[in-house]
Nucleic acid binder design. Structure first.
Length: 305
DNA sequence: ATCCCGACCA
DNA sequence: TGGTCGGGAT
């Protein structure tokens, strides 16, 4: 058998109502917290995956203004969706591609009706365990417990749950009040995002769990390790971003026209030359973001539509 | 430098 | 299980 997991408080009633009351009293207002439209929720969740919420608000409004329904998004050109993503600095163009593809799935495989269960939602491209439960919760109030980095940090500190995904999942499920996934998942993530950040603000934010919190009692606010990303400056990701933004501006370019706009030190036969650029473009083509055409001897690159 | 409501693919 | 995927704000 596995190791013993620490017990949550015996009576979960007061723990649950304390958090829900705290949330309803003092949570931040975000526009997606005022809708139950699964399409609008999905857009907000995908945008929020690795981007600060404050930067998502304008993008979310603009996106829904341009593509108000899942049908409208499915009918859009992928290049336009990726273009919007870049314009609003949302990062990770793959997420725009996934969202566009998921919209197509909803229209063709589900007849335009959004799936409502976490299991069915996970079939959508780009929708993993977190996003599936988030949409099921916030749109249909019918999700399981979400486990993201915020929730892990909260459980680790408050209830001494070991840094282990299975343990986090079990503890999160046990805490979730039956039939209240909408407010609960919002609340526990809000707690992690506002009061129980890397540097905690227990008293400042009036954390509702102080009387039960292991970390608050011991003063040890260690948090689970989050893998640190390699530097962005000079990275392959930065170069991919430059390819996409350059192709948006020029529609299509030959290899040696694109190269210098991606790296100032581009030299056709140098270390960062045609061969390097072809490799970069091959990955972008595999990701469905660009097209590389070899017509009559010359290679031309453009964004995929 | 580090953070930010993950998911995909090998 | 690990490598990869953007970019702005602080």
């Amino acid at each position: 058998m596995g190791e013993e997991t620490p017990a949550l408080p015996a009576d979960l009633g007061p723990v649950r109502s304390a958090l829900i009351e705290w949330y309803e009293r003092s949570h931040r207002e975000y526009p997606w917290r005022r809708t139950e439209d699964p399409y609008e929720i999905l857009v907000s969740e995908v945008m929020s995956q690795q981007t600060q919420l404050g930067r998502v608000v304008d993008a979310w409004r603009g996106f829904l203004e341009r593509w108000p329904t899942v049908e409208a998004l499915a009918a859009a050109d992928r290049a336009d969706v990726v273009g919007f993503w870049s314009d609003h600095s949302l990062g990770y163009n793959n997420r725009a591609k996934y969202l566009h593809e998921a919209a197509g799935q909803v229209c063709t495989e589900h007849d335009g009706e959004f799936p409502e269960t976490p299991e069915d939602l996970e079939e959508l491209m780009g929708v993993g365990p977190y996003t599936a439960n988030a949409v099921a919760s916030f749109a249909f109030n019918d999700g399981n417990a979400v486990v993201d980095t915020n929730v892990k940090r909260v459980l680790y500190r408050a209830f001494d749950v070991p840094d282990d995904d299975t343990a986090f999942g079990r503890a999160a499920e046990e805490l979730l009040p039956d039939g209240r996934s909408r407010v609960w998942n919002n609340a526990i993530m809000e707690l992690g995002g506002v009061a129980c950040e890397k540097t905690p603000g227990c008293d400042r934010e009036g954390c509702p769990w102080r009387e039960w919190c292991h970390a608050y009692q011991t003063g040890d606010f260690t948090a689970p390790d989050v893998p640190t990303q390699p530097a962005f400056e000079g990275s392959r990701r930065q170069m991919r971003g430059r390819v996409v933004s350059t192709l948006r501006e020029y529609d299509e370019l030959p290899l040696d026209g694109l190269g210098p706009r991606v790296r100032v030190d581009y030299a056709p036969d140098g270390e960062y030359g045609r061969e390097w650029l072809r490799g970069l473009l091959e990955d972008l083509a595999d990701d469905g973001l660009v097209e590389v055409d070899s017509a009559d001897g010359t290679v031309v690159v453009r964004l995929r539509r």
